[in-house]
Design a binder for these strands. Structure first.
Lengths: 231, 231
DNA sequence: AATACTCTGTATCTACAGATACAATCGGTG
DNA sequence: CACCGATTGTATCTGTAGATACAGAGTATT
């Protein structure tokens, strides 16, 4: 197989802690399926045999889940270096549960899940790191999802917002910070309509709980915000 | 260490596929911390050093997460044989992010995460299975959370219910089925108030979309229900 | 610098779902 | 069989958040 992709993969979370030189031998040992896809091309459809964990070597793919009713639900974008399909693969599913589409011309690599567990002598030294990385990827995904569920279960836009803002405050260690996404995206993330969120922010500014300008926010009355969040 | 616990652990998902005799040597090799807790006793508080993945050998524990605002949010119960803390442990967190309380007199076992990756010669044969099980546990957790997020993001009780009912129909391969939880629990799971859900079910019965009696449900107009779900 | 284009703030109207209270039914227990 | 507690069905009222529309501010592009 072609080994021109190692530079792109050196920064991939899955290969973190593996020296580029070792990555070389690891990949030759794994001999994974590597395939080129044109923009818009479908790499996998629900029901297709799941041959391995996907890695975006270059480009970007989109994952579209469909539920029992057949309507598109969860949508996510996977960028260079990130993995996809690992949840289904390690849960023992033998078929793709979602549609994978190339958003741009992309090169994808597929590694059969058993390879991660295999006892090839040459790769054995890297298995430990590789497995550790995969456990970390899955765990961090669970943490992200847990956090999202926590937000979605909060009733009322104001408590939802306050909880989110307090989390940002914790992350930045400051009462003044820049939102990590646009207000529209934030509204989508919290699953509320953008005008409703905007209205609530406006009211909270009137009440001197906070101030904001575009994406910058300053919390003025942290105590009251905490009370609202825990209501 | 005491090895009286192997029977209880034989059915644990983490040790699935490992022969009881092998489990014996595995545990002696691991030499994990095992501790007894009285009902109501706190096994770990947020900030405590996270020494290992927890396993409920006997009894039952409760996991209570708290968010930035300091109010209890996600609550889950871990029964005999199940693991807890694995997400935090493998995400590299060194401290417990939640409160762990014994709901009954319980025996807990803690295995340092590195042990799963270690290359002890004696246990090496089981490592593969053990790691595979852990990957499966994490993946299935991600799947459950994904599904929950999908439900929570649906706006409107009726589409939410219809999506859920169609999923049950898929699982049971029948238009008539018994709900896997009480209506109150279902309402909580879907994050709607119980009377609101009851009202919606009543209306849908009036409209001849479905019929129900307590926990049994019969879908009468699957096509319309699918249309509602994908709205 | 002029232009599109996206993102944001604001207003009005309406509908949906929550809170609450109470009755009916179910299920377990003595 | 009679009791009690838990679960479920139903009604009314109210408040909140969604939909929609539009104006203004920001930011890219040429």
């Amino acid at each position: 197989m072609d080994l021109f992709y190692e530079d792109a993969l050196a920064t991939a979370p899955l290969f973190e802690g593996i020296h580029p030189a070792d990555l070389h031998s690891l990949l030759s040992c794994f001999n994974p399926l590597v395939k080129q896809y044109d923009k818009g091309e479908i790499a996998a459809s629900p029901g297709d045999p799941l041959t391995g964990v996907g890695i975006v070597v270059s480009g970007e793919v989109e994952i579209l889940h469909e539920n029992a009713a057949g309507n598109k639900s969860l949508l996510s974008f996977i960028e260079q270096g990130q993995t996809f399909g690992e949840v289904a693969a390690f849960a023992g599913q033998t078929h793709w549960p979602a549609t994978v589409t190339a958003r741009r011309d992309s090169v994808l690599m597929f590694i059969p899940p058993q390879r991660f567990l295999g006892n090839c002598e040459r790769a054995c030294a890297f298995h430990k790191t590789l497995v550790q990385n995969m456990l970390k990827i899955l765990s961090e995904k669970a943490i992200r999802l847990n956090k999202k569920v926590a937000y979605l279960e909060i009733k009322g836009i104001r408590p939802k917002l306050c909880t989110y803002l307090l989390e940002q405050r914790n992350l930045t260690h400051s009462d003044t910070f820049i939102l990590p996404m646009s207000k529209s995206e934030l509204a989508t993330y919290l699953s509320v309509s953008r005008p409703s969120m905007s209205r609530e922010l406006g009211l909270m500014r009137q009440e001197k709980l906070l101030d904001f300008y575009l994406s910058s926010v300053r919390l003025l009355d942290v105590e009251s915000i905490q009370k609202i969040a825990s209501s």
